[in-house]
């Protein structure tokens, strides 16, 4: 319903003067706010390219003179381990989590959306209530469990739980599946499709947008994840980018150019993904009413 309204900006043919002033005022406010939002990011870029003596100038210099591109090289070579290792670790973790999230939730949500079984309502209620659960209450026993089975300093504790579905995505995908007309199910049944065939041949192909949303959210969240890797990974070769950045902060807290360089690099994948897929983001938020 509200999904259809997104992005539909109907232009009015007769624009009154009052309306024009109003629109002008709104744009002024929105642009001013937008500048406030973007200034920190501009400052990040500016700092990342400054020569050392310009960083601590007060009042600040906005345009670095000259542009010190070598900051980027120095920042990524400051670590005892190759920077590419962190990128690879982050990629591996995020892609595996994305894979597990899409696979498991697509299946579980299908059962909740389309199949009738005893206890489905109770189960779905439990699914929804776990959304409210802070992860801290399960964090300690899970750490003990994973350390007992030797998973410390591996990505298993961070990846494996995502292969067992998650309340938020079950909800998102179930909401989407229910928008697919049931008549399709009946038609497929008459043609001799079983439950699995119905899922694989009808619902799955029709839910590509929702699966895409799931993948985008899962990737972004796991890329940005901090507490989990902080607990489970202590050897530098295993660090994802987020923890490598935190290490840099602890080791070289005042190297602002370098800190801004790596922050900028770390935010590129989720930000680019957001630019490319922003329509999906918004659709995902409309489906669930939950933020990203």
């Amino acid at each position: 319903m509200s999904g259809a309204a997104i992005g539909v900006g109907t232009a009015r043919t007769s624009v009154k003067r009052a309306r024009r002033t109003q629109v002008f005022l709104i744009h002024t406010l929105l642009i001013a706010g937008g500048i406030i939002v973007m200034i920190p990011l501009a400052w990040m870029l500016s700092t990342s390219l400054k020569p050392p003596h310009q960083i601590t100038k007060f009042p600040p210099i906005w345009i670095p003179d000259p542009f010190v591109w070598s900051n980027y090289v120095r920042a990524v070579t400051i670590f005892p381990v190759s920077f590419l290792v962190f990128v690879r670790n982050s990629m591996y973790m995020s892609l595996m989590i994305t894979l597990g999230t899409v696979l498991s939730n697509a299946i579980v949500a299908f059962a909740f959306a389309r199949l009738s079984f005893r206890g489905s309502r109770v189960l779905f209620f439990i699914v929804l209530s776990t959304m409210m659960l802070p992860q801290q209450v399960t964090m300690i026993p899970l750490f003990i469990l994973f350390s007992r089975i030797g998973w410390i300093n591996s990505y298993n504790p961070l990846i494996v739980p995502h292969f067992f579905a998650n309340a938020y995505f079950v909800f998102l995908l179930r909401q989407f599946y229910t928008t697919i007309p049931r008549e399709l199910d009946d038609a497929a049944r008459i043609d001799g499709c079983g439950v699995i065939g119905l899922f694989l041949r009808i619902l799955l192909p029709l839910s590509k947008p929702a699966l895409g949303i799931t993948a985008i959210f899962a990737f972004t969240w796991s890329w940005n994840e901090f507490l989990g890797p902080l607990i489970y990974l202590s050897r530098m070769e295993t660090y994802p980018l987020a923890i490598a950045l935190s290490f840099l902060r602890a080791a070289h807290g005042v190297l602002w150019s370098e800190l801004m360089v790596v922050s900028f690099i770390a935010m590129l994948p989720p930000v680019l993904l957001f630019f490319v897929a922003q329509k999906h983001y918004i659709q995902g938020i409309v489906i669930t009413g939950v933020k990203g």
Partner: peptide, 30 residues
């Protein structure tokens, strides 16, 4: 309010939400 450039504004205002917490924290520390 039915204004133009709505998608652009949306992207700008939502951008901070997709930035990794660690990068945002370092930026704000600065």
């Amino acid at each position: 309010q039915n204004i133009s450039a709505q998608p652009t504004y949306r992207v700008v205002y939502y951008l901070p939400a997709v930035i990794p917490g660690i990068a945002a924290s370092l930026l704000w520390l600065w």
